[in-house]
Design a protein around this nucleic acid. Sequence first.
RNA 1: GCCCCUGUAGUUCAAUGGAUAGAACUGCGGACUUCUAAGCCGUCAAUGUUGGUUCGAUUCCAACCGGGGGCACCA
Length: 560
Amino acid sequence: MNIADNLKQVLARSLGEAGIKVSAEYVALARPKELSHGDYATGAALQYSKQVGMPPAKLAEKIVAGLGTLNGVKRVEVVAPGFINFHLTPDTINNVLGEAIANEEAWGRNDLQKDSRVMVEYTDPNPFKEFHIGHLMSNAIGESISRLVEYSGAEVKRANYQGDVGPHVAKAIWSIQKHGGDAHDANVLGKAYVDGSNAYESDAEAKAQIDALNGKIYDRSDPQVNAIYDAGCDASLKHFEEIYKTLGTKFDYSFFESETAPFGKKIVEEHPEIFEKSDGAIVYKGDEKKGLHTRVFINSKGLPTYEAKELGLAKKKHDTYPYDKSIVITGNEVNEYFRVLLDAMSKVYPDLATKTVHISHGMMRLSSGKMSSRTGDVITGESLIAELKERATARASESRADDAERLAEQIAVSAVKYQILRQASGKDIIFDRERALSLEGDSGPYLQYAHARAYAVVERAKSQGVTLGIQKGDTLEPNDVSRLVTRFPEVVLYAAEKLEPHLLANYLISLAGAFNSWYAQVHILDGTKEAPHKVAIVNAVRATLKNGLWLLGISAPEKM
RNA sequence: GCCCCUGUAGUUCAAUGGAUAGAACUGCGGACUUCUAAGCCGUCAAUGUUGGUUCGAUUCCAACCGGGGGCACCA
C-alpha cells in the first residue's frame, strides 16, 4: 500500500477514536504546496473541531496521539491553527528516487485507464485554408492529452478530422479559377481562400458563382473543378503532414467531411422522431430548460451542417475503432453547438454520447482582436515556428548540440507548445509575439535546458566512475528537489484525470526551478562520499524531466 | 434581451475550500577563479465591487460592473 493511502487509513482510525466517523477515502490529505509544511498534510482537525467541540489544536494533538507508529514517516507535527504535517523519512524518499532511476520507462505511469480504448480527435485543420496558430493550440493540447491517457494504461488512437468540402473550398477554387494560381501550392490556396471569401462578402455575382461551385464540388460534375480540387486537397494534406512531423504528432486515422456529410445526413433523415422539419430545414429542438438552442442539422438546400456531420463522425469513429471513450478537442466557439449535438446524440446513440468527452480550448487572440482566416489576419503555424527557429539559431550553433539546425527547431516547437500548455486549456491565450518568442524564464526551453544540464552531469559522473543510483544505507536528508521528484507520478495521474496538461507543465517548471536553484548552490561532483547521492538526485530529475517533457509532447534534447 | 465562459502584480499566467496568494516578463539591485549564464540571488508590485455560506473563500452562492463567445440554415 502506498504511503498516502496508509496515512488516510490510519487517520480515519484515529479520527474514529476521537468520535469522528469518516471513511479513509474521504480523509482530507493533501500535498502542501509549501515544502516546509512537510510531504503530506491534513486539515482534519480544523474541519471537525466544531463537530466534536474541541479546539483545533487540541483535536490535532489527540489525532496525532492516536496514530501510533507510521511507516515511512519520520516526523509528525501540529502547526497552528491545527494542521497536521507529515515529514517522510529519507529512506522513503530515496526509495522513490531509486524507482525513478531503476525503471525509467515506467516512471510516472499509472493504471487509471488500464486496457481501455480511447480515441482522441484534435488539430482539425481544413484543406484549402491556412494552418494557423489556433490549430497549433489544438494540436499541442490534443497531443499532450493523448500521451497522458497513454501513460494511464489506455490504448490511444489519434484522429484528425478535416473539412475537405464546404463553402471554404468553393471560395478558394473560385479565386483560383478567376485569378489563376498553382493549386499544388498550399500557400497559394490559403491566399485564394481569403480572396474568395472577401469576394463572397462584397460581390453578389461572386457569391452566386461560389454557391454554384459549391454544388459542383459535392457532385463532382465538372472535370475542371475536380482537377483543381484534387490538386489542392493533395497539396494541403501533404503540407499538413510536414507540420505534424515537426510538431511530433502521428495520426492513426483521418476523417473527412466529404464522408461524414452524407453519412450524418442519412442518420438525421432516419430519425424523424428526433429531428423535425422547420422552414424547409431539418432541425433538432434543444431543450430550452437545459439552455439549449434549436439547431439546424440539414439546411433547406438539403445539405448537412456542422451538427449533422459531427453526428456522422461520432458513429464513423466508433465503427472504425470501437472506443470506450472518445475525446474531442475543439475551439470553444463551438461549445454551444456541441452541447446541442451531445443532447441529440444521447437520443440517437445514447451509448456513444456517454462515451464522448468534449474539451474546448480558448482562442488564440491577438492584441488587435480575434484572428480571422477570412480576412487573412492570421499567423500561420509555420511562420511562427520559423520565426522562433530563426531566433534560436544563434545560440543553438554555439551550443553543444551535434545538429544545431535540429536543436533550433526543437527549441522553437518547445517554446510554442509550452506557451500553450502552461495555462488551463479553456481560456483564451492572448498571443504576445515577444513573449512567445522568448526562450527564457517560464518557457519550454527552460525545461529543456534543465534536462540537458542534468543529463550532462550524469554523463560526467559516469566518466568519473561515480556510482549511479541510490546506495544502501544512504540516509542523506531529502531536499526540495528530491521531495518534488517523488510527486511526479501523482501529478501525472491528476493531470490525466482532469485531462489538463497545464497541471503537469506547472509542476515541471517548479521542479526545474528547484533543480536549477540547487545546482547553483551545491557542487555535485565534489569528490565526497555524498557525491553519489547527489548524482542520484540529478539522475532522477533527468528521468522526470525527460518523461514529463514527453508527456507534454515536447522533445528533450540531451545536449544544449 | 437570453444562454455559456471569464475577471489575480504594469504585462502574461498559477494556486484538489487551507497555512505568508506563487512564478515569469518588465523595472531596480546583486553574486560568480567551481559540474552548462537559455542559469542563480535579492527587491518593488495583485484577488473588479457588495453581500452570503464556512473554522477557513482567489476558489462555492447571489447581485452588480467589465471582457469574450453563442443565440437556426458557416465551421
